[in-house]
């Protein structure tokens, strides 16, 4: 029981939820997108500075649970400097990871800490919400996205 909890709330997740990285608005942003979880009212805003096809800088703001905050924080680290295509490929893998616990052999680095989420179906949305917002921003959509 506590093993599963420790899998879900790994130290890296607790650390990022307490001191989120890149947690601020981004003055140079040319794309923003919002994610909203209608179940809890939580929301996250992603700020992206795209230079052509590359995510030059990225930050976020919002309120949420430990899982969604840590996910957003680690996401900003993982996506900085990536191309649009790389970001989309990474999203596909993180999606697979949090729903199945599998990484398809890929080395996801720090993102691998989210493997424990798949045992908590009600929490998958929390982990994936910032990713939906990031993908919407990468695609150049700036309307709010939702977990539903």
């Amino acid at each position: 029981m506590l093993d599963e909890l420790n899998d879900l709330y790994q130290q890296v997740i607790l650390d990022h939820s307490r001191s989120p990285r890149n947690f601020r608005p981004l003055a140079s942003a040319n794309r923003t997108a919002q994610g909203q979880n209608p179940l809890c009212g939580d929301n996250v805003t992603l700020y992206l500075e795209m230079a052509g096809d590359v995510i030059k800088d990225i930050s976020f703001q919002g309120s949420g649970c430990a899982i969604s905050k840590a996910s957003a924080s680690i996401l900003t680290e993982a996506l900085k400097g990536r191309t649009r295509a790389e970001a989309k490929a990474l999203f596909a893998r993180i999606h697979e990871l949090v729903t199945t616990g599998e990484t398809a052999g890929a080395d996801l680095g720090k993102l691998a800490v989210f493997a424990g989420v798949h045992k908590f179906p009600a929490r998958v949305k929390c982990a994936i919400l910032p990713w939906h917002a990031a993908m919407a921003a990468v695609e150049g959509k700036d309307q709010p996205v939702s977990t539903e």
Binding site: L5, C40, G64, A66, A122, R123
Partner: peptide, 12 residues
């Protein structure tokens, strides 16, 4: 502690 985290742990 966020309510969702609290409820997840309580469920365990």
């Amino acid at each position: 502690v966020h309510a969702h985290d609290l409820v997840t742990v309580a469920d365990q």
